[in-house]
Simulated assay, not measured.
Amino acid sequence: MILKNHKLRLLIGFAFFSFLFALFVPTVHATPGPGVAVKPNYPSTQIQNSGSFFFKTKPGEPQTITVDLANLANYSQTLDIEPTTAYTSKDGAITYKPGKMPSDRTLKYKMRNLVKEKKQTVTLGANQTKKVSFTVNPPKKDYKGIILGALYIKTESKNDNVNANNVNLNNKVALVMPLMIKSQDKKVNPKLTVPKIAPNKSGAQTIIDTTLANERPTTIKGMEVKDRIYRKGNPKKTLAKNHQYQLSMAPNSNFKMQNDFGKNALLPGTYHLSLQAHDMNGNHWKIEKDFNVSIKDSVIYNNNNWWWIALLVALFLIILLLLYLIYRQKRKQKKLLNDRTKYVGD
């Protein structure tokens, strides 16, 4: 009898937990989406078959490249294909997304300017494949390193695009076909620099923007960066620090790495950045750089240190008052001198 009651309790418990599982675990339904595939057709100058374009160029000699675009969906799709220039995103990754990119003074050639066709639009029927051509016009002179970009392929979407199952097909798909060229076989090593350091704000938080720049026409991959910021002359007290892994940078590009200043007051004066970095190819960098914080920067970017801001404003007003008093005193002295000269003359 005891055994039967035990089995009954187990059965009731199993049924109860089965009911809870069925109640709280949602059922997943498959939804059809836009499927697109792209395949590069390598030119005869292709260096390696890696799933993307990487070929050698001769000065001023155009090369035609083609890609096969396949619509894998059971409805027609319109694709926009646009050549872009590689740059480094704000998160420290190589990206090819079209639009405004951070400028870099060391970037000599932009891939999007070397491709003749600026944008092509192709409509593919259901399960249809088409070949699309682009012409790459390399620089008229030999160039060092690589020029990196991509063919950025994006599906157009329409809110009224509904299939036979009344499923709204307004999802967008973006594909990237990297495009890299070179004219020399000589290896180029990356060069990491810090061209600018400046205070800034992220919400209500004070930060220090450290601009990291790759000044050479080659990529940086698998980079680890460690840095710290302290007031010059007081290296024992770290005011901000950062440690980031697996960063990558496009040729001749830059991005801003942020240091959270925490609750530390951003006082006017000279600060120091101490930075060390290395990448997966064995390159190492050590950068030591001073930067200044002005009274104006301290007032604008301080992290809610209102007492310090009030002190700075009061100091600024005192300086203005002193300048005014000095100006008035000099003006009074000048007037007295003019009056004496006039009296002597009479």
Rank of each mutant, 00 (worst) to 15 (best):
S44L: 04
A15G: 08
R112Q: 15
L175V: 07
N170M: 08
R112N: 14
G60K: 10
I81L: 12
P178T: 05
K110L: 11
A265E: 15
T45M: 04
Q63L: 10
A150R: 10
L322I: 14
Q244D: 15
G233N: 10
P190E: 03
D290P: 01
P217D: 06
L322W: 04
T193W: 08
D346G: 05
N252D: 13
P98Q: 03
S50Y: 04
T193V: 12
N163M: 12
N170D: 14
L20Q: 04
P59K: 06
V136D: 10
G60W: 03
P138A: 10
S157N: 05
N137L: 04
A22C: 15
E156M: 14
N171E: 11
P102E: 10
K263D: 15
K154V: 11
N252H: 13
I12A: 09
I326V: 13
K100R: 09
I326N: 10
L273E: 08
N127K: 15
G282R: 02
N159H: 06
K97Y: 05
W285Y: 11
P217F: 13
A86W: 04
V313I: 14
V299R: 03
P34D: 09
S294K: 07
T64A: 06
L322V: 14
S183E: 02
T95H: 00
A86S: 12
N163C: 11
K58T: 12
P32L: 05
L311C: 03
A126P: 07
I153L: 14
L79V: 01
N242E: 05
E82K: 06
R328N: 12
T45V: 02
Y343E: 05
V136R: 06
L151V: 07
H284Y: 12
K154S: 15
L114A: 01
Y343T: 03
L212K: 06
N302W: 00
K187F: 02
N283W: 09
H29A: 05
K144T: 12
F316H: 05
N171Y: 08
T66D: 05
I153W: 09
P34W: 00
D209M: 10
V136E: 03
K335F: 06
T121K: 09
A265L: 11
L124E: 00
L11M: 15
Q63H: 11
Y143D: 11
I300K: 10
D290Y: 03
